[in-house]
Design a protein around this nucleic acid. Structure first.
Length: 212
DNA sequence: GTCAAGATTAGT
DNA sequence: CTAATCTTGACG
């Protein structure tokens, strides 16, 4: 098994972590069965300075895990029907997190297809709500420690060969500043990024793989 | 207590 | 473009 990602990785700015998360593996274990997805799209959310962030107005019962230690999950229900998975980053109390927007299925495809019946491979995990359904991630995992290698964690994957693109975040509200922030990161031309990102080429400031 | 809005998705 | 579906948080 690949190397477990340590807490020090998460204890940095959400913007940096969001980009560095591309190519790493999201691992879910259910009843001994292993599901793995390669992270191909993320979004960074900061704390009280970011009008698009759930943490913008300070801690509440829902977002309380955002203000906890880095390396934990923040999972919430949106539109009454879809769950979204975030990774808490940065210093305790800042309210930073990274939304996992899309992964490329690597292991446990059969279970993922079971959780999302009749869905084409390409659309199995190409959105924040879709990947949570495929990986059976819900609010019971809110606050879960990702550094324990239990139930849900991340492992280091090989550095991505694809170009890293960035652009404005999808579906967010807030002030003009928040809307203009290029804090969505994704792997160029990867078939498993969200439909929105696929249509969002050309990417803003393209850069190449990080110095992993 | 009330109520509008939501870091989405699938279907018309 | 719109419905689905229900929790949250702001306000009073």
């Amino acid at each position: 098994m690949a190397e477990l990602i340590q807490r020090s990785f998460y204890a940095r700015s959400a913007v940096v972590v969001a980009r560095d998360l591309l190519g790493h593996w999201l691992v879910r274990e259910i009843a001994g069965v292993r599901l793995v997805g390669r992270i191909v799209e993320t979004e960074a959310y900061l704390g009280e300075e970011d009008a698009a962030s759930h943490a913008f107005r300070g801690p509440t019962p829902r977002n309380r895990s955002m203000f906890g230690p880095p390396g934990h999950a923040y999972v919430y229900l949106i539109y009454g029907m879809h769950h979204c998975l975030n990774i808490v980053t940065g210093p305790v109390g800042k309210g930073q997190a990274v939304l996992i927007r899309a992964v490329e299925p690597l292991e446990g495809l059969d279970v993922m297809r079971m959780n999302r019946k009749g869905v084409p491979l390409r659309q199995l995990t190409n959105g924040p709500g879709k990947l949570c359904q495929a990986f059976a991630i819900d609010k019971t995992l809110d606050g879960h420690d990702l550094c324990l290698a239990q139930a849900l964690w991340l492992e280091a994957g090989p550095p991505p060969q694809e170009t890293i693109c960035q652009g404005p975040r999808i579906g967010v509200r807030g002030d003009d500043k928040a809307l203009s922030r290029p804090w969505r990161f994704f792997l160029k031309n990867n078939p498993f990024i969200s439909p929105n990102s696929l249509n969002n080429h050309p990417c803003n400031a393209s850069m190449h793989s990080d110095t992993r």
